[in-house]
């Protein structure tokens, strides 16, 4: 079995893994990072989105061996010292979650979206989140939350 080295939410792990093991199952079943859920088996829903070396990936379509040597950030590693990341806070303020199952992936995808466009329009946000499905909110409040999160994060960048 291949041995991989992987950093997850700041903790280094070395794991022997079957080549077929999916990253999301490594996170959930082996490393106990159950904050990242699985919503489908065809890479459509985006619930399992995490950051892999700083870019969002659907962890159900990455093999654990492909993440060898990589740095993974999940929803559990996003906020610093128990505080919420501005995007998490924005989702709270705008009531952008109901059942919360899509939320970890949605937050991750939203943060990644802002790397390409720190001040996205509604249209850009809707297109940017096309790969993340939500069944509860109708997306209106998610769009508002991403706008709000973008403003907060922009402010944070501008304020030294």
């Amino acid at each position: 079995m291949p041995r991989i080295a992987i950093t997850v939410d700041g903790i280094k792990h070395e794991e022997d893994v079957e080549p077929r093991l999916l990253l999301v199952h490594l996170l959930r079943d082996r490393l106990g990072r159950t904050g990242t859920p699985v919503g489908c088996d065809t890479t459509n829903c985006g619930a399992c989105t995490v950051m892999l070396d700083g870019r969002s990936v659907k962890s159900c379509s990455v093999l654990a061996v492909q993440a060898d040597g990589c740095d993974v950030v999940t929803i559990e590693g996003l906020g610093a010292n128990g505080s919420l990341h501005p995007m998490q806070q924005a989702f709270h303020e705008e009531h952008a979650l109901q059942c919360g199952y899509c939320t970890p992936g949605m937050v991750m995808a939203a943060i990644d979206l802002l790397r390409d466009d720190p001040d996205p329009s509604e249209e850009t946000i809707r297109r940017g989140l096309e790969g993340n499905l939500c069944r509860c909110t109708g997306y209106c409040n998610i769009v508002r939350a991403v706008r709000r999160g973008a403003q907060e994060m922009g402010q944070a960048v501008r304020t030294p």
Partner: peptide, 11 residues
């Protein structure tokens, strides 16, 4: 919200 937003879930 807080639990759901930080991944401290009990699915």
């Amino acid at each position: 919200d807080r639990r759901l937003l930080t991944g401290h879930t009990r699915w």
